[in-house]
């Protein structure tokens, strides 16, 4: 059976979604590398520094999972806005995980880059 162009597009979209989702955990750990942030700051950083525009309903449950796994810790800090905010910071285990994942990512993307180089030339 031959795939129709519409289905083809759907497959590509799904692949992209999976790809982005797979990177989300690393992206969050990386956002926290420089220091503690609260949920909305993490979201804004993901949006400004990467293409990882994810729904807010995804990031908060994921943060709480990372906490159960011991990769991040959290604390409540009073803010000038008049309400406390929940700040997240990497634990030593979280830092280790971030470095591991970043290493894998760098190796993978550089080898993919080599593989994909001819495609870029063909496009021009």
């Amino acid at each position: 059976m031959k795939a129709t162009p519409a289905r083809d597009q759907e497959t590509v979209d799904k692949w992209e979604v999976q790809l982005r989702k797979g990177c989300l955990e690393l992206a969050i750990l990386a956002a926290l590398w420089e220091g503690k942030l609260y949920g909305l700051e993490i979201l804004r950083q993901l949006e400004s520094d990467s293409d990882l525009i994810v729904s807010e309903g995804t990031v908060y449950p994921l943060l709480s999972r990372l906490k159960v796994l011991g990769l991040v810790k959290s604390e409540w800090v009073e803010s000038e806005a008049g309400h406390p905010r929940k700040y997240y910071a990497l634990t030593p285990a979280g830092k280790k995980r971030a470095l591991e994942m970043a290493g894998i990512w760098t190796r993978f993307s550089s080898s993919m880059g080599k593989l994909l180089a001819p495609l870029g030339k063909g496009n021009k």
Binding site: T58, Y60, P61, S64, R65, V68
Partner: peptide, 24 residues
């Protein structure tokens, strides 16, 4: 609206919680 429905959000929290605890 950006957070999604409370049911959907709770579902995500609960399943995430389950997965995290299952790892432990």
């Amino acid at each position: 609206a950006a957070l999604g429905s409370p049911e959907e959000l709770a579902s995500q929290y609960l399943t995430d919680d389950l997965l995290a605890r299952a790892e432990v």
